[in-house]
């Protein structure tokens, strides 16, 4: 894989994560626990989908198809999102925990990408970063509040963490072609991201009264569970197939039609 292909592959993986998670988040629009949260969570959904679009525009500028074609005319088995973002929205606890895990990973990744040697990525990362900072403020705040507020909230949040942890590690599955880009300081190593992510989320969960499946030794944190991989290799869950069918239903309905 040459450098250009590796960059395209990387952009596509990130864009697919954002698009599919944004799609899931928007399933709450009209169904959130509080009207204010309907507004807040719809905003997060819009941001994530917007980030996917922006990443795909760079992909396009490197000779790829346009964002709509990539999002709405590509088959499910051509997507490279991790399984984590494909999972059904679950209850509010799962949604909040998933979004918190994702936002933390984003923030850590973007800190590197803001310093990428590749200009288009560097510029976009700087634009996305503040939006993700705000997401993290909101989702982390909710984790901290719901973690040990009531017996029910603690039970649900712990269940969500137990479920989401190994899935979230799938965010750091190696993306094909990564090594070429790491050497040129275009992107960070997925292993570095994972280590920093574990360092970041563990104390937040602890402070929120939640257990995480990690082993802590002398200031380093290691995961104690097997990551859920496969997405970057285009091996997907049945959930993704359903999402793609739903998402592309109208777009593909009439050949040649514009919407």
């Amino acid at each position: 894989m040459n450098k250009n292909e590796a960059i395209q592959t990387y952009l596509l993986a990130l864009a697919d994560d954002e698009l599919i998670l944004g799609h899931r988040d928007a399933e709450w629009t009209g169904h959130a626990p509080l009207i204010e949260e309907d507004i807040a969570f719809s905003n997060i959904a819009q941001d994530e989908i917007g980030h996917a679009q922006a990443l795909l525009r760079i992909y396009e500028s490197l000779g790829g198809n346009d964002p709509d074609t990539m999002g709405f005319l590509r088959d499910a088995d051509e997507f490279t999102c991790c399984h984590f973002v494909q999972m059904p929205k679950g209850d509010w606890a799962y949604t909040i925990v998933r979004q918190f895990f994702f936002d933390a990973a984003e923030i850590i990744r973007l800190r590197y990408l803001k310093n990428s040697t590749y200009e288009l990525i560097r510029e976009l990362a700087a634009k996305i970063y503040p939006e993700e900072q705000y997401h993290l403020l909101h989702t982390q705040g909710n984790v901290e509040r719901l973690g040990d507020a009531t017996e029910e909230s603690r039970r649900r949040m712990q269940r969500a963490v137990d479920e989401a942890f190994e899935q979230a590690l799938g965010l750091f599955e190696k993306i094909p072609g990564e090594d070429v880009l790491i050497d040129e300081k275009i992107i960070p190593d997925s292993r570095t991201l994972e280590a920093e992510w574990l360092q970041f989320v563990t104390p937040v969960l602890k402070r929120s009264g939640l257990q995480s499946p990690v082993i802590e030794t002398n200031g380093t944190v290691e995961s104690n569970v097997e990551p859920l991989y496969g997405g970057r290799q285009k091996k997907h869950t049945e959930h993704l197939h359903k999402i793609i069918e739903d998402m592309q239903k109208v777009y593909r309905m009439i050949p040649g039609a514009k919407w």
């Binding site: 204010e36 949260e37 807040a40």
Partner: peptide, 18 residues
């Protein structure tokens, strides 16, 4: 409507600075 001052500021931002 919000649980505390920090959430109130976030909800205010969502609703009135959108």
């Amino acid at each position: 409507h919000a649980s505390d001052e920090e959430m109130a500021l976030q909800m205010a931002k969502e609703q009135f600075a959108r």
